[in-house]
Design a protein around this nucleic acid. Structure first.
Lengths: 349, 349
DNA sequence: ATGAAAGCGCTAACAA
DNA sequence: TTGTTAGCGCTTTCAT
């Protein structure tokens, strides 16, 4: 293997092998069968290519073929258990299909979202998965203008296919656990269940609140508007809100539906200031899963979204060439307290 | 904005504006000053480009300029708090520099590592950050052959610059906490501290073990080989190992240094089967940070690696054009039990 | 079974 | 101040 001054191209290999660039191209791009190239030629070219350390220039190939081989996805942020799990599935499945994954984060910022999507488009990505966008309409429009196949993940799409967690069903199961196990409190004021986190502008949150309310109704429990605390996803806000609530109630509410892990973290940040018997008569659930949350001082019911299936289904839709608006639902799993979930990748660490 | 059948190119804009492709190119690639293009022409071209929804074809630009504008990074997996935090910093800082981040996971598989790096090279990435690779030598060789500037992150590089956490110092601080607070046990057999997780083939693990031993020595505590349990990073193995250990000892050891979050999860999976007073006379520390680990039934000392600084420093080295082997160290933070760390992005959720 | 040649969209000399 | 032109490395008809 000689260290050349420039990257080896098919022209170098053509020269070295005494054949033409088109033959080399055919061999090296796996079209040798279609072009009926002699087996000996194929082998010779392949050997030379390997020895020269040749790698296809995907920019050139992409430019010519008008397909880059890049699969794009946007997420709000990497540093989040749910989205990083989506990323892992996206990455793995992309590479299984011979695509190169490109994942970019948008920080839940609409301006950034469009900038990022425009960037990805300019790199000629072949497809785009959109997860957790704030302005899905705008992004959909961008993709449509660029004729870019796109699928919304964990987000309903008005003008394109989408794959979402069955938030309603997951939240229903979680609500049944919380409301069903709530003990009758001596203390009337604390007897009510609460929902904390997210924003109802968000589809997923809205679905979960709906389920929470409907289960409450079925259980004969009234839910007032003040029992639904919408403080977004930032841990800091959640800390403030839960502290204020417990202050008002003189203790924890009988039941608490926490709408995401980040909110859960914020809630914990307040809980840790309480004596350990403060939790004994509260049932706590979280819509999202974290292995460590399974091992806290008190039991936590959790709902784990199936990111692998979300992504797998999205790829299926892509393969089908689906472009019409649609909504596939993926069932999440209810995880009992003190349970370590074993996924396909949990042996990796 | 008309929906054309093909993507708009500079030729379309040239035609529409009555100027030449090179002028359009200059304007649209921000070289209008250097080419002294008339302000009115610039404006006209920009307006037409915007109206036509023009976006630069980065494949074509990259092919011509021999620079893609892609910044690559490989990590073992996305679904991991430390690596996803690296990803976030990498993504943010890349886009601040006008680069498009491409992050691919290798699943700690040497074969996959080379495949992934080859793929990234074929997309003509301008630089590569290598994190958590198993065969760093091989990857370094690949990059060198491709004349690809590369930097090892959280990994020492023999033939290229590297930025690593000061594992020794972090582990020393953590060891002092654990060993310094260990109570004298009535039960002699449980009086010894243990180190669990990782593999000493791994640089970071080796450094941490070294520090653990040296602090023990300074504290007059002997460390036998059986006190260093190397079971890799998979939670499952850790569960088995810690169970076997506690079985042997008849309880928890007086001190436990856990070498990563995934191992910690495995350990917790066993701990949760124990009565809550089992932890009262053990000091537990973990080299890695998770907000929820701060809120377990027992206090946990944690070390948080500063991923933002790791990446920032790596970019600095890149900007400097550093290619010679070197090792920058970044200090990690010791996090006291019951503490929620506030990072630059912790307000996002 | 293989080669010649055009062109994907862009940039950068070189001309004018 | 702007236009002409020659590629970047690859694929793909169309010839042979």
């Amino acid at each position: 293997m000689t260290v050349s001054s420039r990257k080896t191209t098919i022209y170098d290999i053509a020269r070295l092998s005494g054949s033409s660039p088109s033959t080399v191209s055919a061999v090296l791009s796996g079209a040798s069968a279609k072009r009926r190239i002699k087996a000996s030629t194929v082998e010779a070219i392949q050997k030379i290519a390997t020895d020269a350390g040749y790698t296809t220039n995907m920019q050139a190939r992409g430019l010519r073929r008008a397909r880059s081989g890049l699969a794009g996805m946007i997420i709000p942020l990497h540093d989040n258990r749910f989205f990083s799990s989506l990323s892992q599935s996206f990455d793995t499945l992309a590479r299984e299909r011979g695509l190169c994954p490109v994942i970019a984060s948008t920080l839940r910022n609409p301006k950034e979202e469009t900038r990022v999507v425009e960037t990805l488009i300019s790199y000629a990505i072949d497809s785009l998965f959109i997860a957790g966008a704030t302005d899905s309409e705008a992004l959909g429009a961008l993709c449509r203008a660029a004729r870019l196949p796109h699928i919304f993940v964990d987000l309903p799409g008005n003008n394109a296919p989408s794959v979402v967690t069955n938030n309603g069903h997951g939240a229903e199961q979680l609500s049944w656990k919380i409301l069903g196990k709530m003990r009758v409190q001596a203390d009337k004021i604390r007897a009510k269940p609460y929902f904390i986190g997210g924003s109802s502008a968000d589809y997923a949150t809205a679905e979960r609140i709906k389920a929470f309310k409907s289960v409450a109704k079925a259980s004969g429990i009234a839910i007032d508007q003040d029992q639904i605390i919408q403080c977004g996803y930032a841990p800091r806000n959640a800390t403030v809100e839960i502290a204020a609530l417990c202050d008002r109630l003189g203790g924890l509410p009988a039941g608490l539906f926490v709408n995401s892990l980040t909110v859960f973290e914020g809630v914990m940040s307040y809980f840790v200031t309480l004596p350990s018997d403060a939790f004994s008569d509260s049932i706590i659930g979280c819509f999202d899963y974290d292995p460590l949350a399974a091992f806290l001082q008190f039991p936590v019911y959790m709902v784990r979204q199936n990111s692998n299936q979300l992504i797998a289904r999205a790829y299926e839709l892509l393969d089908l060439g689906a472009a019409a608006p649609s909504m596939s639902q993926i069932e999440p799993d209810l995880i009992e307290p003190r349970t370590l979930h074993k996924g396909p990748l949990s042996d990796l660490g």
